[in-house]
Design a protein around this nucleic acid. Structure first.
Length: 301
DNA sequence: GTTGAGCGTT
């Protein structure tokens, strides 16, 4: 078989380059990577759908109808295996020193240059509506976050700082319940259950009545709960912060017990499942457990 | 009707 040239572009819309095949008719991944750094494979469009090419031992194999029948573009690890190799999560960032005048539109306009924005807030006085001079943003891409953190920002004629908020709590107790802060009244228990259900089985959701701007979500698996602590999540457009459900102070007080969900000061608006849950629910907190650090409800470890 | 280091109605 003789050498053939294959049309390959970086992205589907980009200008293709001709790449030479090997004697066996395959295309070496290193040949692709020489032109498109970081490429991990090739794909093409077939009948409106994307199709990936087989890759064996660094040889990209042609489709059944041969190379010439299609145009190819690159697959990159980041684009296709987000679930397998997640980049660091973006966190909310605080923007300090905003001019009093500056609103969310201006903040968004400014930071959009760094990358896609998922959230922009300018904090205002509840009564007057005047800006407090700071706000919060969240980028879609960690690289954008890094770029924004790496420098000062001139916004509407004033130097502003972008930092990681220190309200973030790095600590996370090993418990199944998480505190969900910065809830709005628009977030219902069902919203929270549906959203957090994607991370693991949710066994309980507390939403204080009257509205208190936070909620508690309990998972079956404490590892799931722990893994979420310290993160910001956007639910129905609301940026909530997840942290350990155990308050930092006031242990032993009624508010402590309330925080742990051991006392019902608020309405239990969601409970599941009704009975299987009853026993382990209130017996395994480190401060109250009769049997220290045993986790009879776990099937692993 | 003000202000200029901070931290988002726990």
């Amino acid at each position: 078989m003789s050498i053939e040239y294959v049309l390959v572009s970086e992205g589907e819309q980009d200008e293709p380059i001709e790449l030479p095949t090997e004697e066996d008719g395959s295309l070496l991944l290193s040949t692709v990577a020489a032109q498109f750094a970081g490429a991990s494979g090739l794909k093409y469009r077939s009948g409106g759908r994307l199709r990936g090419l087989r890759l064996t031992d660094e040889h990209v194999l042609p489709p059944a109808d041969g190379w010439a029948a299609n145009r190819y573009f690159c697959a990159f690890p980041r684009a296709d295996s987000t679930a397998l190799m997640p980049r660091p999560r973006c966190s909310d960032l605080i923007v300090l020193g905003l001019p009093w005048k500056t609103g969310e539109e201006a903040v968004r306009d400014y930071f959009a240059a760094f990358g896609e924005l998922l959230m922009v807030q300018v904090k205002r006085d509840m009564k007057t509506g005047l800006s407090k001079g700071f706000g919060f943003i969240k980028f879609a891409d960690y690289e954008a976050q890094m770029r924004a953190l790496g420098r000062r920002h001139m916004i509407d004629g004033r130097w502003c700082d972008v930092r990681i908020p220190n309200s973030k709590d790095g600590s996370s107790a090993n418990h199944r319940k998480v505190f969900v802060g910065r809830c709005t009244e628009s977030l219902t228990a069902d919203d929270l259950r549906e959203y957090f259900g994607a991370f693991g089985q949710v066994t309980d959701v507390f939403v204080p009545k009257p509205f208190r701007a936070f909620s508690f979500v309990t998972f079956l698996d404490p590892e799931v709960a722990q893994s979420l602590c310290g993160q910001d999540h956007i639910i129905k457009g609301v940026s909530v912060n997840i942290s350990s459900a155990s308050p930092k102070r006031e242990r032993g007080t009624r508010s402590q017990l309330v925080g742990w969900g051991l006392v019902d000061s608020t309405a239990r608006v969601y409970s599941w499942p009704p009975d299987a849950w009853h026993h382990s629910n209130h017996s395994t907190h480190p401060h109250t457990a009769a049997v220290p650090d045993t986790k009879p409800y776990l099937k692993y470890e």
